[in-house]
Design a protein around this nucleic acid. Structure first.
Length: 291
DNA sequence: CACCAGGCAAGCC
DNA sequence: GGCTTGCATGGT
């Protein structure tokens, strides 16, 4: 991986295990959208980014080399060797197919608070509507900023949302999730939950803490552990993962979510979260397990 | 019209 | 522990 700065873009060449469509369509992130062939624009970490790719060359538009290293290098998890991860997972037959199919997936290092709210909103919901709710939330309560001449909105802070009541959130049309968002906001705004505290805990303790928030159950907690804290043992079991795990590893037999989690711990260990992302992308794109 | 969407909480056994 | 039901909203 090498850097080639030109005018005010940062171009990274020889990037491996990186494909924008895989990164942004594997369900970990809701605020990046395609704006062209191999090009996405989105807002994260209080900034907006347009990013495009041609082969192994990735362009971070209107981004200085300094901002690239300070912000996006970490966000895109560029310090991690995904070839090694895929190699280890590929010893398993189903994962060989899934990692080949989603070869460009990376697990982003997203803002913890944004991840908490995004996955609370994801409960019993579909991805287009999850995105809509999040966008309305950001437009109403987030900080506006300009990027390449257009206005974008940051994800609202916990304290901005902690002041609200459910009536304030009704234009967001989050449905029954509005009270969950506010409870989470109060827990993060008053500091009783924060990144340093949760990072310092083991996976199961961090999960237990997260589940004390109204609206965070087992699946949402696992998503937060994986996408917000990069605790990669987490294997979030949603309907798709339940189906695809049953399809590949239980001969299509229906088993409980507890069985699925136990299987993932034993089969994938600390790579469970990576396995989950490859399997989720593979299952959704190919409609695995729907028969 | 019923049924479902990356679940959760509450209530039951 | 595991199972059932109601829950807002929007799409088919």
């Amino acid at each position: 991986m090498k850097i080639k700065s030109s005018n005010n873009n940062t171009v990274v060449i020889d990037v491996r295990d990186f494909k924008l469509a895989h990164i942004f369509e594997c369900g970990q992130c809701f605020r990046f959208n395609p704006v062209g062939e191999n090009e996405y624009i989105g807002t994260a970490l209080d900034r907006t980014l347009r990013i495009s790719q041609r082969g192994s060359e990735v362009t971070f538009h209107s981004v200085s080399e300094r901002e690239f290293y300070d912000v996006w290098y970490g966000y895109f998890d560029l310090d991690r060797d995904y070839s090694a991860i895929k190699r280890r997972l590929s010893r398993n037959d189903a994962l060989l197919k899934a990692t080949e199919y989603g070869e460009g997936i990376r697990i982003l290092n997203q803002d913890l608070w944004e991840t908490v709210v995004s996955f609370i909103i994801s409960a019993s919901n579909n991805i287009p509507r999850i995105k809509g709710i999040i966008e309305r939330l950001c437009r109403a309560f987030g900080r506006p900023h300009t990027y390449e001449g257009n206005v974008y909105y940051s994800f609202p802070t916990a304290s901005a949302l902690a002041r609200l009541n459910t009536d304030d959130l009704s234009p967001i049309r989050a449905g029954f999730r509005d009270k969950y968002i506010i409870d989470a906001a109060r827990r993060f705004a008053n500091g009783s939950l924060n990144r340093d505290y949760l990072t310092g805990l083991g996976v199961s303790d961090a999960k237990r803490e997260l589940m004390t928030v109204y609206g965070i159950g087992s699946k949402v907690a696992d998503c937060i552990l994986l996408f917000g804290l990069h605790k990669t043992e987490a294997y979030p079991v949603d309907v798709w993962i339940k189906r695809v795990t049953e399809h590949f590893f239980f001969g299509g037999r229906e088993v409980s979510r507890g069985e699925i989690s136990k299987f993932a711990r034993e089969a994938f260990g600390e790579l469970g979260g990576y396995a989950q992302q490859y399997l989720f992308f593979y299952a959704r794109e190919n409609k695995i397990g729907l028969d």
